[in-house]
């Protein structure tokens, strides 16, 4: 996307928003105008930044731990047929339990601090990462297996030399999903019980009818998520290019 396109898209979005405010003639405590939200954002910049930092840390740590856990699980599943048979149904079942429903319990177990939010983010991204990477590890051309077998390959070496590099693009896809899900997990955690973070700030602002501040927090959260998505997208792209044998332009 070219910079001009981005500016244009933002412009159209803001125009639609302003148009809606004018058409509905909604009072500012129901639907604030873009300008009012911008003013609130500037006015409360310190408090927004403080809380954004908390949420961003939760998301980053959740993403890190969740990805590591997912990668480790996928490798374990790829190495053992038994583990695969037993673990996969359990994994699918855990995915069927909505994390939203678990949020109060997690807050009870891990407290009101960052811990419970990180766990929430980990839980919400664990499955997409595991599933995507496991798929990449096991979906491998039978001819490679035959060649490796004829060469007397060791299972672990086959995993290291062929399966893992081959699965890197799939891992990238899983991480891109995770980057979008992780903030959701963190914010749900903050809604259920917290004293810091953008989710907490949104609830607080909403409760005090400071809708402009709520929107400001929401926009900052969305921007954080987009930035994270772009960063992980670049990483995923690099993984793909590496596995495809292209030399990275920047590295």
């Amino acid at each position: 996307m070219r910079p001009f396109d981005i500016v244009l898209a933002i412009g159209i979005g803001l125009a639609l928003w302003q148009g809606l405010v004018i058409i509905t003639d909604a009072p500012h405590f129901i639907l604030p105008s873009p300008l009012r939200v911008a003013q609130a954002m500037w006015h409360s910049r310190v408090i927004i930044a403080e809380n954004a930092l908390v949420t961003a840390s939760e998301v980053a740590l959740g993403l890190l731990f969740g990805s590591l856990l997912g990668v480790a699980t996928a490798i374990q599943l790829a190495l053992s047929r038994t583990a695969e048979r037993i673990m996969l149904p359990i994994l699918v079942f855990t995915q069927a339990v909505p994390v939203f429903a678990l949020a109060p319990v997690l807050t009870l177990w891990f407290g009101y601090g960052m811990g419970s939010k990180i766990v929430m983010a980990v839980l919400i991204i664990y499955f997409p990462v595991t599933s995507a990477f496991h798929d990449g590890l096991t979906r491998i051309d039978q001819n490679y297996r035959d060649l490796a077998q004829s060469m007397g390959a060791k299972k672990l070496q086959f995993l290291r030399q062929i399966q893992i590099p081959n699965a890197l693009p799939s891992l990238g896809t899983g991480l891109k999903l995770a980057a979008v899900y992780a903030p959701i997990g963190a914010v749900i955690g903050e809604w259920v019980g917290a004293s810091k973070g953008l989710g907490y700030l949104m609830l607080l602002a909403n409760g005090r009818a400071k809708i402009d501040l709520m929107f400001a927090s929401l926009i900052v959260l969305a921007c954080l998520t987009v930035l994270l998505h772009i960063a992980v997208g670049i990483l995923a792209n690099r993984l793909s290019r590496y596995a495809g044998g292209e030399v990275s332009r920047t590295g």
Partner: peptide
């Protein structure tokens, strides 16, 4: 064993591909 498809690993150099047997063992 040599198959119809070359089965070279795209992320390795030609030299590394030649040596893949030893790496796999």
């Amino acid at each position: 064993y040599m198959a119809q498809s070359d089965l070279l690993l795209p992320w390795l150099t030609v030299l590394e591909n030649i040596c893949i047997g030893a790496r796999l063992r």
